[in-house]
């Protein structure tokens, strides 16, 4: 029976993933900022087979509360076998361009809050000598694009941070999994027009669990994004800068 901590637990991708973990009879602790949704998820996960479920509600940008939050999780679960970090916001690029405050706020939500959590979690898992740190980044982190570089650069920071952590923690029996979804149909992307490249959160959730079960380092979800991003990364900068992406 795995002990699972889910941060950003009300994200559609996190919900799908936690349901799969509930079916496996996991013990779970949820962190998010929408208390009523967390309560609804708790009941849902218990019905689906979770062994026990606890939650705490907090704004993850209040980084000073992260320590307290992790203590609560450990008090409830006893240990941490799997940690999934899933919160994020799809930044309004144009609004960010007009506001330093907004830009830094987005960087905080999508990068700094995660860095704060990872700093604490890395030490916990390192001491424990086991566990999985699974973090949802994005294909957007692979290369900054004009239409989306505030979000993209935040995810790029998370990627680099995770790569460093993996390098450090792989020697300590800790798996660090970087999850890079492409387009996913969730509340975050409700406003965007959907096409054939879009996946649903259940598909992503299955990929996340497979990545965890197989001890992977980096997963692109669905898999074809690895090749799409390979091409995008390959385009020379002098060409790339002229494209409207």
């Amino acid at each position: 029976m795995k002990k699972v901590l889910i941060i950003g637990a009300t994200s559609a991708i996190a919900i799908s993933t936690s349901r799969l973990l509930a079916v496996r009879g996991s013990q779970m602790f949820l962190v998010g900022r929408n208390e009523v949704s967390l309560r609804a998820s708790k009941d849902d996960l218990l019905v689906r087979g979770a062994d026990k479920v606890g939650y705490v509600s907090m704004d993850l940008n209040e980084t000073q509360r992260h320590g307290e939050c992790l203590n609560e999780a450990i008090a409830f679960l006893g240990a941490l076998d799997i940690v999934l970090i899933a919160h994020g916001t799809l930044s309004d690029q144009q609004a960010c361009e007009a506001s330093v405050e907004l830009t830094l706020g987005e960087i905080k939500t999508n990068a700094l809050s995660t860095v704060s959590l990872l700093t604490l979690l890395a030490n916990l898992l390192e001491n424990q000598g086991s566990g999985v740190l699974a973090v949802i980044s994005s294909v957007a982190g692979d290369r900054g694009r004009g239409s989306n570089y505030v979000y993209g650069s935040a995810k790029a920071m998370v990627d680099a941070f995770l790569s460093g952590l993996r390098n450090r923690l792989s020697k300590k029996g800790v798996q660090v999994l970087t999850i890079k979804p492409g387009f996913v149909d969730t509340p975050m992307t409700a406003e965007l027009a959907k096409g054939i490249l879009w996946a649903d959160p259940d598909t992503i959730a299955k990929g996340i669990l497979l990545g965890i079960d197989k001890g992977r380092n980096i997963v692109y979800l669905p898999f074809f994004w690895r090749y799409i991003m390979l091409i995008i990364k390959f385009v020379p900068e002098f060409v790339f800068k002229r494209l409207s992406l």
């Binding site: 559609a12 609804a40 998820s41 009941d43 849902d44 019905v47 689906r48 509340p187």
Partner: peptide, 9 residues
């Protein structure tokens, strides 16, 4: 579609 939680069984 997001109102898809079980409540009790």
């Amino acid at each position: 579609r997001y109102l898809n939680n079980f409540i009790s069984f």
